[in-house]
């Protein structure tokens, strides 16, 4: 029991408990709502042609997968804020290696949650969406590394951003720019239709690259022609997602430490006080 990095094993156990709680009872409806709604939208787009050879659902499905990976960032921000408000984070802080276990648990739970979202979209999608090219081993290899880098990058950024947000209300505000980013990231409309400066903004963040990476994994080569530079740009995808992962992994523990250093019983009580005032 006393070997290994302290808190890691407990962190995985914690992640499994959180995962069970996230998918039980009333939570289940909320969890299933968005992926199922997105799946329905993809299904309805089967009849919208895009060019002579394809329909819109073929492009939206992989892009939506990328989007749900990116949403991991918002999940981290929201849950960090909620756990700060109710004192769960303080409990972690006053327990030896509790913060490490907490973070591992959070990343395990949110990664598994996102995998569940992707399964909800992908398993039916593979059946009814035409024009996908998933027979190659390369497509699943690409899917795997885009997914892996994407989970690390977006959740590390989530921890970083979440460290500056102390209330659920603040977490709500964070979701606005993220939704904006999704809108300009070529997931629902081709990025080539946007003004050039917006294209640059989109390309600075992981959402665009997650969508692109997922399209490169699941689509045949030909549609790459309508992407920017007429290519799937796998090297650029790996570099941008890798860079965000690296920056996130370096910065997140630093700002998280700064944030948890300031957690105390009276702060938790004061935040709850404010929250109650808003309700009342």
């Amino acid at each position: 029991m006393s070997n290994g990095i302290p808190g890691v094993r407990a962190g995985f156990a914690r992640g499994m408990i959180e995962l069970r709680l996230a998918f039980s009872g009333a939570e289940l409806v909320g969890q299933l709502l968005w992926p199922v709604a997105t799946l329905v939208a993809v299904f309805l787009l089967r009849d919208v042609p895009i060019g002579p050879d394809y329909t819109l659902d073929t492009f939206i499905l992989p892009g939506a997968l990328g989007m749900f990976v990116a949403l991991g960032m918002l999940l981290v921000v929201q849950q960090l804020a909620a756990d700060r408000e109710d004192g769960s984070l303080l409990r972690a802080k006053v327990t030896p290696n509790g913060i490490r276990a907490y973070l591992i648990g959070k990343l395990v739970q949110i990664s598994a949650t996102i995998l569940a979202y992707l399964a909800i979209l992908l398993l039916p999608g593979l059946v009814f969406v035409d024009g996908l090219d998933t027979g190659r081993p390369g497509s699943w290899l690409t899917f795997a590394w885009v997914l892996g880098l994407g989970l690390v990058a977006t959740q590390a950024i989530g921890v970083f951003v979440g460290s500056f947000v102390s209330t659920s209300r603040g977490a709500g505000y964070v979701s606005l720019p993220v939704l904006g980013l999704i809108a300009i990231s070529g997931i629902f409309a081709p990025i080539t239709a946007l003004p050039e400066w917006l294209q640059w903004v989109a390309q600075a963040f992981p959402v665009y690259w997650l969508g692109l990476g997922m399209r490169s994994a699941l689509l045949p080569d030909a549609p790459a022609a309508i992407e920017l530079h007429g290519s799937w740009r796998p090297v650029e995808t790996a570099v941008v997602l890798g860079a965000w992962s690296l920056v996130g992994l370096v910065l997140a523990p630093i700002v998280l430490r700064r944030m948890t250093r300031r957690e105390s019983g009276s702060r938790v009580a004061a935040r709850r006080e404010r929250a109650l005032q808003r309700l009342g």
Partner: peptide
């Protein structure tokens, strides 16, 4: 603390076992 209201969805035994597991290495 007076104001603990964390882990509201966890079960009693679950939280206690989890918290306890973090102390095992300091035995």
């Amino acid at each position: 603390l007076q104001s603990w209201r964390d882990h509201a969805k966890w079960r009693v035994r679950e939280l206690l076992a989890y918290q306890g597991s973090l102390y095992a290495r300091y035995t």
